[in-house]
Design a protein around this nucleic acid. Structure first.
Lengths: 243, 243
DNA sequence: TACAGCCTGTATAAGCTCGAGCAATTCAGC
DNA sequence: GCTGAATTGCTCGAGCTTATACAGGCTGTA
């Protein structure tokens, strides 16, 4: 199990800091893709969902590209019989939904609104038309698909270690980069997250999350105020995530 | 943690059986993509790697699309300091490598040949040209990107449960579908896999895999012959993966 | 204001993994 | 066919997670 080569840990840091760029890139590409579709006269259906509403269910046929334009939304799937894991927490300009251009496609997770959110749905045939007529749309879409893959890779990174502490040490910086609000050099995750929510994201239990979060707070690694987590010691978090 | 809604377990089965279709679809799309590129006069570099050779390393800049055309190859990344996890085990007509069309891209894993294998590398600029000039290439590429995402989702599915037994019960059918050889109605995974290899795929330890595999063999769920695993009781495996 | 429901914090026993160590066996190269 | 390396099989404690249970706090609603 010990690695036989030099993994150059420094590189991981470089990879991670580029996630912020990913966020900006995604917003740009996603917004300009929708704009492009509009200019091409392509109909996109926008719909508003209230907290808890399902956008689609696992197993449904997916024949559209979904874009979240406002609010927060989660993709989750059941596992081990009676638990549910949050696969992705989406913010505006994230895309979701499976739209294979060939072969049958079923949604591989449940999509549910967390806050009130606005979703733009582009039927598959229109996406096809856009790709056919406008290569720029194809590039933007492929960039977005690639960024979605990166998010899954990050999820895998969170799930590889078994200890809840290490998983959270991997997850919290990700949430901070995606939902972070910078104040006084410290980053606060601008979401009300219950321990249960966090547990679903790292496939652990509420109790373990409670325990780890309190430990981190006692060690001044994080601060929790009204369900909002502030990262106070990112160096310690980074160190934890490697162990 | 208990789910508040009906997850319709039957649907999971339907989703999984469609993976075989995914394999065929992928071969078709990938082969025809390469053929299309050839017809367009696009230069693709083909190179042969011996077992253990690195195709690229984590952190390197990725500016190409890689296609495995023969052999077996693995993508892996280090975690928890000194362990390594196999993220994907690739067979011919799998694509790999990050090629964002915008923004900097670094490889997010190590790619290493398992057996001797042949890899076709298409530089990013040529992929761009193909997408620009030939929408069919764009469709095929997007389909392949989507299929790659599905593989990551399957990996996540393997990693969600904590028990090694359940993880393997999820992994083995996946391997069987990808590398399976049907004989007498039973499927054999046509690869020599050590317990260490399997442990890297489910992020567990060699010892745990040994134990679980022996239990499964004693219960006639699987059969192991010369490092090749045969699935004898897929129903029991499916049941295990749900618990 | 009272209430119900959710969230947090603790505690316990039980189960599983992890890591170390050490044989026996198998495999691969010579 | 032989030898060295790798793989497999097994054991044992330590550590962590899980499941369960319960008490107190917070929040939104009636």
């Amino acid at each position: 199990m010990v690695l036989g080569r030099d993994f150059r840990e420094g590189m991981n840091v470089a990879v991670d800091t580029s996630l912020t760029e990913y966020t900006k890139l995604q917003e740009q590409e996603c917004q300009s893709l929708l704009q492009l579709l509009g200019e091409m006269g392509i109909a996109t259906a926008e719909r508003v969902y209230g907290p808890g509403d399902a956008i689609y269910n696992q197993g449904e046929y997916g024949d559209a590209l979904y874009v979240l334009t406002s609010g927060v939304l989660k993709l989750f799937r059941p596992y081990s019989g009676s638990k549910e894991a949050t696969l992705r927490l989406l913010k505006p300009w994230d895309i979701f939904g499976h739209l294979a251009f060939a072969g049958e496609t079923r949604q591989r997770a449940y999509a549910e609104a967390v806050t009130e959110c606005r979703v733009t749905k582009v039927p598959k045939i229109f996406v096809e038309r856009a790709v056919r007529q406008e290569p720029r749309a194809a590039f933007k879409l492929m960039t977005l698909l690639e960024l979605r893959l990166v998010q899954y890779e990050e999820l895998v990174k969170c799930l590889l270690p078994r200890e809840t502490e290490v998983r959270l040490a991997n997850l919290l910086p990700l949430l901070a980069q995606k939902f972070g609000q910078s104040t006084d050099g410290l980053v606060t995750i601008d979401l009300r997250l219950t321990h249960q929510d966090l547990a679903a994201m790292v496939a652990s239990t509420r109790e373990s999350v409670t325990k780890v979060l309190n430990e981190m707070r006692n060690r001044d690694v994080i601060d929790v105020d009204a369900g909002r987590i502030t990262l106070k010691d990112t160096r310690t978090l980074a160190r934890l995530s490697l162990e």
